[in-house]
């Protein structure tokens, strides 16, 4: 057992003071130490994208970053997407309306990936969106409805 270190994380605007080993990945810290289990872990080596979250506004693989590295950053997870209990984020709404998910395991990663892209660049066209979506794996949908949902969200967010 190696020594734990105190780490302060800011997730979706909330402060979390946790004691963790440095080897704890950000994904595991979010799930096990902060209790935010919306971030899913698939492959744990950066290929599947299920654990994609936003760190300082940019999409990253939470399995390829150690939680100690995220000290002082602004972290956003799927729990922080919707503005309140009554409304969905435009990307969430578009996935709902366009049937952009089936089993839902990959969905938090896709939502954060697309939200990160569109908040940075709402005018993303379909060609670029296809390239962005190639970051993450989905074993159910065949991606077509994820693409439709992402473009619908792009239209709403750029309009």
């Amino acid at each position: 057992m190696s020594q734990t270190v105190p780490v302060r994380l800011y997730v979706n605007g909330d402060r979390h003071d946790i004691d963790i080993e440095p080897r704890r990945t950000l994904a595991d810290a979010l799930r096990d130490d902060c209790g935010l289990t919306g971030t899913h872990l698939g492959c744990e080596h950066g290929v599947c994208g299920a654990c994609t979250i936003l760190v300082d506004g940019k999409p990253v693989r939470a399995c390829l970053m150690f939680a100690v590295q995220a000290e002082g950053t602004s972290i956003r997870t799927v729990e922080g997407l919707a503005p309140d209990d009554q409304q969905l984020h435009p990307v969430q709404r578009a996935f709902w309306e366009k049937h952009g998910l089936q089993c839902g395991f990959c969905t938090p990663g896709f939502l954060m990936l697309v939200a990160g892209q569109l908040e940075e660049k709402p005018e993303t066209d379909e060609e670029e969106m296809r390239d962005v979506l190639s970051s993450n794996l989905c074993r159910c949908t065949g991606y077509q409805n994820i693409l439709k949902a992402s473009m619908a969200a792009a239209e709403e967010m750029s309009g």
């Binding site: 440095p22 744990e44 080596h45 399995c63 390829l64 150690f66 590295q69």
Partner: peptide, 25 residues
């Protein structure tokens, strides 16, 4: 440790087991 996009997968697989990480970020 810079971007970690090659090193951390290798560590997750335990193909790499460095005793110390110097984070230059």
């Amino acid at each position: 440790l810079a971007g970690g996009q090659s090193l951390v997968p290798m560590m997750n697989f335990r193909l790499a087991r460095p005793e110390r990480l110097i984070d230059i970020n």
